[in-house]
């Protein structure tokens, strides 16, 4: 399994008036302070409060296949991201006030602004109406979309606030989920090809709508390694999902002994 090389990790998260430990181990998120999280969820559904730890576990579960985790998260050890729980709370508060009034100006603080901006962006393009326009249904649709965008942004900030160790493990989980999906799509395509007598088996490009996002995620990470190890311009690194048997290939164009050695190491 992909997570066998990743040791367990822990962090402290706000939960009510105190902080609790959140643990990741063998591909699973654990809440040691909430041994019966399922029961707590039932109570929450009946109107009780939801513990902070449980909320975070829900956020984690919502994004285990979300390619945005790869688009936003760290690309490497030198890629510094700092999000604290205070900023998450500020963003939640700001985004909750990012209705029409947000059009008037930016809310304070970059992270809070990002949350509000994302909320604005969500409806700005698909609902080009301006304040005071549109039917009740239109306004409700806009509001719903804004809330969804707000939720998404604060979710990602919360995941980043867990720290880099959790970030890399969630990225692994997302990548593994899509690798599995891609393999499934390839299998389907190969089967169809066999039935049709066409060459849609090994080597054929499968239809997978998330290929550009996956390619970019791989490239963004490999490019930094290539820059560090080989010293080449990261903008000259091209990567794509390997779709054949084996582990993949590395190809280096141009000359230079040092670069060739580096390429071998990269491979």
């Amino acid at each position: 399994m992909w997570f066998e090389s990743a040791p367990p990790c822990e962090t402290e998260v706000p939960c009510g008036d105190s902080t609790h430990t959140l643990r990741w181990e063998a591909g699973t998120l654990q809440l040691p302070s909430h041994p019966d999280a399922d029961a707590e969820l039932v109570l929450a559904a009946l109107g009780g409060g939801k513990a902070g730890c449980v909320q975070i576990a829900e956020i984690w579960a919502r994004h285990t296949e979300d390619l945005s985790v790869l688009a936003i998260g760290r690309r490497g050890s030198a890629d510094q991201i700092t999000v604290s729980w205070d900023t998450v709370q500020a963003a939640e508060k700001s985004a909750s006030h990012a209705g029409w009034t947000a059009m008037a100006g930016p809310p304070p603080g970059p992270l809070a602004s990002a949350a509000a901006a994302t909320v604005r962006r969500a409806s700005a393009t698909r609902f080009p109406m301006r304040p005071g326009h549109g039917s009740q249904a239109m306004r409700q649709a806009i509001q719903a979309e804004r809330e969804q965008a707000q939720q998404r942004t604060t979710d990602h900030l919360s995941l980043l606030a867990l720290g880099p160790a959790f970030g890399v493990r969630l990225a692994g989980q997302v990548a593994a989920a899509h690798a599995q999906r891609l393999a499934g799509a390839r299998g389907t395509a190969a089967g169809a090809g066999t039935r049709a007598g066409a060459g849609a088996g090994a080597g054929a490009r499968t239809r997978y709508p998330h290929r550009p996002a996956l390619n970019a995620a791989i490239e963004g990470r490999v490019a930094l390694l290539a820059e560090e190890w080989i010293g080449i311009d990261p903008g000259q690194v091209y990567a794509s999902v390997h779709e054949d048997t084996g582990w993949g290939t590395v190809q280096l164009t141009g000359t230079g002994t040092r670069r060739r050695r580096g390429a071998a190491r990269l491979a």
Binding site: S68, A71, L111, T118, R121, A122
Partner: peptide, 13 residues
């Protein structure tokens, strides 16, 4: 929308 929202957040953090 999704791509630019991700980029915006990625740059901000």
């Amino acid at each position: 929308d999704a791509l630019l929202a991700d980029l915006e957040l990625a740059l901000t953090v």
